[in-house]
Protein backbone atom coordinates (compact mmCIF):
# COMPACT_ATOMS: atom_id res chain seq x y z
CA UNK A 1 0.00 0.00 0.00
CA UNK A 2 1.14 3.48 -0.71
CA UNK A 3 0.95 4.75 2.79
CA UNK A 4 4.62 5.36 3.42
CA UNK A 5 4.13 9.07 3.85
CA UNK A 6 1.21 8.46 6.18
CA UNK A 7 3.22 5.97 8.23
CA UNK A 8 5.84 8.60 8.82
CA UNK A 9 3.31 11.33 9.57
CA UNK A 10 4.17 12.87 12.91
CA UNK A 11 0.65 13.52 14.11
CA UNK A 12 -0.50 12.73 17.63
CA UNK A 13 -4.03 12.91 18.94
CA UNK A 14 -4.19 16.09 20.95
CA UNK A 15 -7.04 14.98 23.17
CA UNK A 16 -5.68 11.52 24.03
CA UNK A 17 -2.00 12.46 23.85
CA UNK A 18 -0.99 9.32 21.94
CA UNK A 19 0.46 8.80 18.48
CA UNK A 20 -1.85 7.63 15.71
CA UNK A 21 -1.74 4.02 14.57
CA UNK A 22 -2.44 2.34 11.26
CA UNK A 23 -6.02 1.09 10.98
CA UNK A 24 -8.67 0.11 8.41
CA UNK A 25 -11.19 2.91 8.15
CA UNK A 26 -14.33 3.00 6.02
CA UNK A 27 -14.86 6.02 3.85
CA UNK A 28 -18.12 6.50 1.97
CA UNK A 29 -19.49 8.54 -0.89
CA UNK A 30 -22.83 8.54 -2.69
CA UNK A 31 -23.89 5.27 -1.14
CA UNK A 32 -20.66 3.34 -1.70
CA UNK A 33 -18.23 2.54 1.13
CA UNK A 34 -14.56 1.62 0.85
CA UNK A 35 -11.97 0.37 3.31
CA UNK A 36 -8.74 2.36 3.38
CA UNK A 37 -5.65 2.17 5.57
CA UNK A 38 -5.35 5.36 7.58
CA UNK A 39 -3.63 6.54 10.72
CA UNK A 40 -6.10 6.69 13.58
CA UNK A 41 -6.17 7.33 17.29
CA UNK A 42 -6.89 3.94 18.80
CA UNK A 43 -8.64 5.57 21.73
CA UNK A 44 -10.96 8.25 20.32
CA UNK A 45 -11.02 7.34 16.64
CA UNK A 46 -9.85 10.65 15.19
CA UNK A 47 -8.15 9.96 11.85
CA UNK A 48 -5.54 11.55 9.63
CA UNK A 49 -6.11 11.98 5.90
CA UNK A 50 -2.99 13.30 4.22
CA UNK A 51 -3.28 16.14 1.72
CA UNK A 52 -2.10 13.90 -1.10
CA UNK A 53 -4.83 11.34 -0.45
CA UNK A 54 -7.54 14.01 -0.31
CA UNK A 55 -6.48 15.97 -3.36
CA UNK A 56 -5.51 13.20 -5.75
CA UNK A 57 -6.77 9.72 -4.90
CA UNK A 58 -9.98 10.67 -3.10
CA UNK A 59 -10.74 13.38 -5.65
CA UNK A 60 -10.33 10.84 -8.44
CA UNK A 61 -12.55 8.30 -6.67
CA UNK A 62 -15.20 11.00 -6.11
CA UNK A 63 -15.11 11.82 -9.79
CA UNK A 64 -15.57 8.19 -10.79
CA UNK A 65 -18.52 7.76 -8.43
CA UNK A 66 -20.12 10.98 -9.64
CA UNK A 67 -20.00 9.60 -13.19
CA UNK A 68 -18.33 12.66 -14.60
Amino acid sequence: MTLDSANKAPWHCAACGIPLEKAKVQIAYLGSAFPVDLLRCSRCGIVFIPEELALTRMAEAEKILEDK
Binding site: T2, F34, L53, R57, E60, I64, L65
Partner: peptide, 18 residues
Protein backbone atom coordinates in the same frame (compact mmCIF):
# COMPACT_ATOMS: atom_id res chain seq x y z
CA UNK B 1 -21.95 -0.60 -13.89
CA UNK B 2 -22.11 0.83 -10.39
CA UNK B 3 -20.03 -2.12 -9.17
CA UNK B 4 -17.53 -1.39 -11.94
CA UNK B 5 -17.36 2.24 -10.89
CA UNK B 6 -16.90 1.19 -7.27
CA UNK B 7 -13.99 -1.00 -8.22
CA UNK B 8 -12.57 1.91 -10.22
CA UNK B 9 -12.99 4.21 -7.21
CA UNK B 10 -11.32 1.65 -4.96
CA UNK B 11 -8.41 1.37 -7.35
CA UNK B 12 -8.15 5.16 -7.51
CA UNK B 13 -8.07 5.27 -3.71
CA UNK B 14 -5.18 2.81 -3.73
CA UNK B 15 -3.37 5.00 -6.22
CA UNK B 16 -3.67 2.43 -9.00
CA UNK B 17 -4.25 3.45 -12.56
CA UNK B 18 -7.90 2.59 -13.08
Amino acid sequence: TKALRELGALMALQGLDH
